[in-house]
Write a protein that binds this DNA or RNA. Structure first.
Lengths: 229, 229
DNA sequence: CATTGTGAAGCGTTTCACAGCC
DNA sequence: GGCTGTGAAACGCTTCACAATG
């Protein structure tokens, strides 16, 4: 017995729903309704976009009034699959892996750390954010015992592909990749990538445009900052 | 005297150029040329996309041969403004701030850490990744002395807006924001946001679709994983 | 009458397909 | 022959503008 033949939600909308959710969660308990204008203001986007985004969830607003905060929170959570926790396993207990494991702030929002594994014998057994680092070979056990669907790759780039393959072999179906490498995995696996260097390089591009560089100053200073042309 | 009336490069292309650059850098010294097909394969994208992306830099390929790796690297670096280092300043020496400061891997790729500041007196003076944590008020000094254009917000959410305002006041013009908050800054400032919880929530959405949830099972198990419907 | 929900237009990105060139 | 460079078509996302409505 199946209901609601689930609409496909555009990826761009999916990426914004968590933001709306966060904003709604920050509203005081006295705020019962919120308009697309207000939500748009908080999220820094266009109000029409908010309405269109929310319309994919169904028609949960009231004309002349707005959206009921509590109900909207419920609908977004349901759509994002946040009605229950998603334990994650972290591969790599280096700087980043440790920071992620310790970073309760993010992971406690429904993504508890089910385990941290590393290949380095020296790290195995140490505690990180309340979790004991286990050996890489324990991955399948952790994934099965804790019913993990999401894996986090926080290894050096050279080890990332192997980490991804082990995660997939262990039964993980989504991967968040922090290593600066393209992971080769079956198309059935969802992968998202966070690359800090890429982010900085994109900012660098904008800085460089801003400073008027790129326009080659033929007889001018070539030093880094603003070529006061 | 100004040359090359700089084409505007689409944002989507700008976001991919760092990836191409990384791949090109990983090629052995014996690889002199690379085709759009090969580059596309490594980057996991369509070959036509690679060609169109590179065409925005100018026509640097040779028909029948491909692109000369060294020259392409040079052109991409120039376009991204990576011909010189961009020192960054990190606000917040908590878990994430420390991990970023220590993470030579990313930041040494042209983004040296010019300074780390924090508001917490207990942290000031401690060493983190070879840099001494300084007090928040030193921000303007660091930015000016080290000619910093890019700031990284790695504070708790409640402190992020203040951190951003201080960065802007100090003269920073680009911000990489790790805090789960929308930053309110002048439109002249470039902001990029990395939100780990958002990434996980997007993966959660795909997991939930995969598992067939969302189709409400009227008389079935509501437990986490696959509802074998 | 404030605010939603949504067709339709506008815009940016991707992909195709092939002419142009080495 | 192989591969680039690019118009043009296709696609998806954003924004507009307004009818629908509590």
């Amino acid at each position: 017995m199946v209901e609601r033949p689930r609409r496909r939600i555009p990826e761009a909308t999916v990426a914004r729903l968590p933001e709306y959710l966060r904003i709604l969660g920050e509203q005081g308990d006295d705020v019962e309704h919120i308009s697309s204008d207000q939500l748009a203001e908080f999220a820094g986007v266009n109000a029409a976009k908010v309405r269109k985004d929310l319309s994919y969830l169904g028609s949960y607003g009231t004309r002349g009034v707005g959206y009921e905060v509590a109900y909207l929170v419920y609908q977004i959570k349901r759509e994002l699959g946040l009605t229950h926790d998603w334990p994650v396993v972290i591969v790599g207990a280096g700087n980043l892996g440790q920071a992620l494991a310790k970073y309760g702030g993010f992971f406690e929002r429904g993504f508890p750390v089910a385990g941290v594994v590393d290949i380095d014998g020296a790290k195995i057994g140490t505690m990180v954010g309340g979790v004991r680092v286990r050996q890489l070979d324990d991955l399948p056990l952790i994934v099965q015992e804790r019913k993990v669907s999401i894996g986090v790759v926080a290894t050096p780039p050279a080890a990332a592909q192997d980490a991804a393959e082990r995660l997939v072999a262990a039964g993980v179906t989504s991967i968040l990749n922090f290593a600066p490498t393209v992971l080769n995995v079956p198309r059935t696996i969802s992968v998202r990538k966070v690359d800090l260097a890429v982010e900085l390089q994109i900012l660098s591009y904008h800085e460089q445009r801003r400073s008027g560089a790129g326009l080659t100053i033929v007889a001018g200073s070539e030093s880094g900052r603003p070529a006061s042309a």
